[in-house]
């Protein structure tokens, strides 16, 4: 391990890590905003809503992220004249926009499946009670279904965001200088591949840990109704916690 090299390249690596974080922080909420309507559409009784949502999710989960990135960036680059005529080239010309576009669609599709499962897992009794209270569809969704679904989905969604953060390393192939690319630039020059990638691996670990910690705090907040003033959970509550997962 060449600690002098690591120290020297640290500022460049931090700039790269900043780009990795930026990609994650922008695409995760946008992906979630896409996932919720997709999940609801996927569960709809109306086939004109359900089918397109299903197709979208199927395509983005069924193809490698790398191919999606290449198709949007290099593939659309081939049709730059057409896109220019349509007035959307300014968006697809930029590697960062292309990267975010694909990441949002991809994480949107995966998250939609997580939330579909969670919504389907909301206890039927809760929905019946809401119906008996005369709640409208939207109120039911807002007050009963989504809060329950978030509690159920949260641990799996935490995983999805960690995966999303790691998947941003593929974006380096669209010439985005994120953490992996900034390490590679230094590694191939110094031939000290080991030191550089160990360091980068550790930085990814720290970011992952940060995400898990932050999402754990949200989870604690979501599950606050299961906490007892005394601290220790009763047998009943522990069982409930397991069941609602």
């Amino acid at each position: 391990m060449d600690f002098e090299l690591i120290a020297k390249s640290f500022p460049a690596l931090m700039t790269g890590a900043g780009m990795t974080l930026l990609l994650t922080i922008i695409s995760a909420p946008l992906g979630l905003a896409l996932a919720l309507p997709l999940a609801i559409a996927r569960l709809s009784k109306r086939s004109w809503l359900r089918r397109p949502a299903h197709a979208f999710i199927y395509v983005f989960r069924g193809t490698p992220l790398l191919i999606q990135l290449y198709l949007v960036y290099f593939g659309l680059g081939q049709f730059h004249d057409t896109l220019k005529a349509w007035g959307i080239w300014w968006f697809f010309r930029d590697e960062l926009y292309c990267a975010l576009f694909v990441l949002v669609l991809n994480t949107g599709a995966y998250s939609a499946e997580i939330f579909r499962g969670a919504i389907a897992g909301v206890p039927a009794g809760h929905i019946e009670a809401a119906l008996a209270a005369g709640m409208s569809w939207f109120t039911r969704l807002r007050r009963i279904i989504l809060p329950s679904a978030f509690r159920i989905a949260w641990p799996a969604y935490t995983n999805e965001v960690v995966f999303l953060m790691q998947a941003t390393s593929l974006v380096s192939l669209l010439t985005v200088t994120e953490l992996f690319r900034s390490a590679k630039i230094i590694a191939v020059r110094t031939f000290d591949i080991y030191s550089m990638y160990i360091t980068v691996g550790l930085i990814y670990l720290v970011i992952s840990y940060g995400i898990i910690l932050a999402f754990g705090m949200v989870e604690k907040h979501l599950m606050r109704h299961t906490r007892q003033p005394g601290g220790k959970k009763s047998l009943h509550q522990r069982a409930f916690a397991v069941l609602t997962r």
Partner: peptide
């Protein structure tokens, strides 16, 4: 080369 052609 492709991106040069595409104007990126």
């Amino acid at each position: 080369n492709l991106d040069l052609k595409a104007g990126r």
